[in-house]
């Protein structure tokens, strides 16, 4: 599944960059995230509870800041597993200055979901993923603009 979007954030680019590259900050905006464990500067581990329809899975996700071009572009790779399900994702984020102040964030995500969640939740998964992504960006925007 491929997702993409653009978010305008009323905050300077450096501040946005610092926020989204800080696992604890950005992690706090992930829906269902229960804990964030920082392994090193570019690796961290998240534990999250994800619900699709009536199925709930507790994922352990390994994240890697794979390619970083501060303060412009970041590629983040994720590999997560829950009993019977797995997720592998690559997300790319590109920041730009908005004319008149603020930051524009263009993002894309390629998400592969395998196992029970994909099989049983297939008809619901795209909608759920869209909703979760929306919640994440709403949260990021709200915290940065606060």
């Amino acid at each position: 599944m491929k997702f993409s979007g653009t978010v305008d954030i009323n905050a300077p680019r450096d501040k946005v960059w610092a926020f989204v590259l800080d696992p604890t900050q950005v992690g706090s905006c992930g829906p269902g995230v229960e804990s964030i464990e920082v392994i090193d500067a570019t690796h961290f581990k998240a534990r999250a509870k994800v619900g699709v329809g009536f199925i709930t899975a507790k994922f352990v996700v390994d994240l890697e800041m794979a390619e970083l071009t501060p303060p412009t572009e970041a590629v983040i790779k994720a590999h997560g597993q829950a009993p019977g399900s797995a997720v592998d994702a690559t997300a790319t984020m590109r920041l730009g200055d908005r004319p008149g102040g603020g930051t524009t964030m263009d993002w894309t995500a390629d998400v592969n979901i395998a196992g029970t969640l994909a099989s049983v939740g297939a008809r619901l998964i795209e909608g759920t993923a869209n909703k979760m992504i929306g919640q994440t960006f709403d949260c990021i925007k709200a915290k940065l603009e606060a």
Binding site: A118, S119, A122
Partner: peptide, 14 residues
Amino acid sequence: YDELGNNLAGTFMD
């Protein structure tokens, strides 16, 4: 099956 080989008919709902 989807392109990842996930079975899309794994319950009596589907």
